[in-house]
Design a protein around this nucleic acid. Structure first.
Ligand SMILES: [Mn+2]
Ligand SMILES: [Mn+2]
Ligand SMILES: [Zn+2]
Ligand SMILES: [Zn+2]
Lengths: 137, 137
DNA sequence: AAATAAACAGAAATAATTTCTATTTAGGAG
DNA sequence: CTCCTAAATAGAAATTATTTCTGTTTATTT
C-alpha cells in the first residue's frame, strides 16, 4: 500500500503516464511476477487502445528506473514484478516458487573485488528461489 | 587435453555418438562459450548431413549429463561451454567477459538451509562474469 | 497556444527455439 | 556376424517471444 513505486516513477527520468501508473497498480493488487502478456491482458481492460509492444517497452524502462525487477524463471519467457527495495542500490531478489512473490537480498558484498580461480570478478547475478512466509505456513 | 569429458560421455546414460564427440572436441579446441548456431556451423563441416534441432537436443542432453554448462549472457540467446568440473556436484561458473572462457566456483554453501526476509531458500543460481587470467595480462 | 520530445498502437518482421514425421544409426541379444 | 529395438537424427514446418517500424497521440516546455 506504500506509494514508493509511484514516488519513484514521479522522480525518475521517464514520464509519469496513466499506463505506467496502471502497471504499478496491477502489480500492487496482484501477487507475484508476471509475464508481459499477462500485464497486457490486464491493461487492455483499462485502456481502449493498448498494444503489446508498448507493454514491453514500459516494463523494461520501469526496470531501468528501479521500479520493477526482471526475474529469471524456467523457460524462455521474461517475468517482471515490483521491486520491493525500489530505489536502493544494487541488490538481488528471491522469488517464491509457489506464488511468485518477490523478496529481497539487500546488501551483497559476496563477490566485491574478489578473484576466483584466477578470474577477476567484474559482475555477478544471483537469482534465489524459495518459499515465502505465506506459502510456508 | 584431458579426457574427462569423453569419459563422462561414455559413463552417462546418453549414447556415445560421433556427433557428441565432435561437440566435445570442438569446445576443447576453441575457447569460450558458444551459441547453438556456432556449434552447428562447425558440425556441418564434419558431417555431410547435420540439422540444427539435433544440435539443440544434444547440447541440452550434454548439460544434463554434466558435460556442458549453459551460460546466461545478455540477449535472448543461449550459450554453452565445457564444464570444467565435469562430473562434480552442484557448482557455479564464471564467464570471461572478453573471451568467454569458463571458470568455476567449486563449493557453494552460501545459501544452504538459510532464510532470507522470511523466505526459505530452496534453490539458487549464480552467474559470475569476470576477466580470465589470459585476458587480464 | 505552439513547439518539442516522449509515448504509443498496430502491423509486420525477426530470431531463437521447438515440434513433428520419417529415416538412420548404435548397442545388445542371439 | 546378423537381427532387433530404442535412441538419435534430418529437414521442414510451426511456434513463440520479442523487436522494429511508421504514423499518430499525448505530455511537457516555452
Ligand atoms: Mn550482489
Ligand atoms: Mn551454489
Ligand atoms: Zn509464496
Ligand atoms: Zn578471457
Amino acid at each position: 500500500m506504500s506509494k514508493i513505486h509511484f514516488d519513484r516513477l514521479a522522480a525518475s527520468a521517464i514520464k509519469d503516464t496513466p499506463r505506467r501508473r496502471a502497471i504499478i497498480s496491477f502489480f500492487e493488487k496482484s501477487t507475484g511476477a508476471k509475464d508481459p502478456e499477462t500485464v497486457w491482458e490486464h491493461l487492455k481492460t483499462k485502456f481502449r487502445r493498448c498494444g503489446l509492444p508498448g507493454v514491453y517497452r514500459n516494463l523494461e524502462q520501469m526496470v531501468n528506473a528501479g521500479i520493477l525487477v526482471r526475474v529469471q524463471r524456467e523457460g524462455r519467457k521474461r517475468y517482471y514484478g515490483l521491486c520491493p527495495g525500489c530505489g536502493h542500490m544494487h541488490h538481488h531478489h528471491i522469488v517464491c516458487v509457489k506464488c511468485g512473490k518477490i523478496g529481497e537480498m539487500p546488501e551483497c558484498t559476496l563477490f566485491k573485488g574478489r578473484t576466483l580461480g584466477g578470474f577477476k570478478i567484474v559482475d555477478h547475478f544471483i537469482q534465489l528461489s524459495g518459499i515465502c512466509p505465506e506459502c510456508g505456513k
